[in-house]
Design a binder for these strands. Structure first.
Lengths: 181, 181
DNA sequence: TCCCTCATGTAAGGTGTTACATGATTGG
DNA sequence: CCAATCATGTAACACCTTACATGAGGGA
């Protein structure tokens, strides 16, 4: 049996905040939790259908100006499943960092080229930090019972990015040292 | 077209250090780069065959005591492909952290339960740090032209785990505060 | 004798992405 | 009028894991 489907829980979780269309879920993911979660339409839409068959969600078709919209709500069964998942221990995740893999085999190319990669990584995380600040500003006015938890995950992202920046600087120095045995 | 296969490069990279069997590659991955890369036999063996057809690796069958072993070497073409990949920009990776997803939806369960999750995460990273030290000790005696790069990735792991520990402590405090609006 | 490690491999199947297809609405 | 966004969905397919299968050799 392959790995368990986690996307269903991200959708159930979002629906626990209130009814939403698949489109809105995707947008919300892209705007607010993209730094630790992604999903694609090609996965979301079929999955919502499947989950409706399983009785985890229900949809109410809305026709606004000749256009069909499917707004989903979480059912009691769905909420139970969400909570059960939340209480289950976190399954070990397989990390795969293409970036670190490249650094690991860095000896195949020049030290300068690896250095450039590190600079690129630094730029990525500077950009991320900028976007974290944006999210924080958006949060500033929000009042929601989940807000404390949202700030926790945001904080996680910030800390990790800052740690990565520090590593980038250290590594840049390390790689510029002569031969560095 | 779906995402490009990265496992092939991990295998080519390992073979750039010297000839190896599929079994040895898997063991090496599990022992030395497991903290940022994983692979399974069910993927490695078929892929090596495919890569041999593509001329990236060659195998020499060895029969040691009636048992068949396939020792692979990287070809010139394989080395070119490895370098080309190393020089390509790192493709954006889709991060998916089940742990953070659970924290994000933490409001569905009790604050104490989320706190326990955080404690569990802390334990994981303490264990990781312990294992990083082990790897470092193993490295102590090694002389290899790639060693500097290996230490860089190791350092990355350490820094990230330390940052995670700091986040865990901060979050534990934050969650134990009364209501914490 | 039994278990662990060495060693290779196949089959099945789930997960998730990209590309494609369609059409309405809204704002500049 | 044109572009962007809203909105849904299918088809194809690559990726990778798990479970299963097999068998030898070595050590306790």
């Amino acid at each position: 049996m392959a790995k368990q489907n986690k996307t269903r829980y991200s959708l159930l979780g979002l629906l626990s905040f209130g009814p939403m269309t698949g489109y809105e879920m995707k947008k919300l993911i892209d705007r607010s939790i993209y730094y630790f979660w992604t999903d694609s339409y090609g996965h979301i839409y079929p999955l919502l259908k499947k989950m409706e068959k399983e009785g985890l969600v229900v949809s109410r078709g809305e026709i606004t100006g000749g256009h069909q919209k499917n707004r989903f709500s979480i059912t009691e069964k769905g909420r139970r499943e969400l909570k059960a998942w939340l209480r289950n221990p976190v399954e070990p995740e397989s990390v795969r960092s293409e970036f670190l893999l490249k650094v690991f085999f860095g000896n195949q190319i020049s030290r300068k080229e690896v250095g450039d990669m590190v600079v690129g990584e630094k730029a990525k995380h500077l950009e991320l930090l900028r976007r974290y600040d944006e999210i924080e500003k958006e949060f500033a006015g929000v009042r929601h019972e989940s807000k404390q938890f949202w700030l926790c995950t945001l904080n996680y992202g910030k800390r990790l990015s800052k740690a990565t920046l520090a590593w980038c600087d250290e590594t840049t120095k390390e790689l510029s040292r002569k031969s560095g045995k």
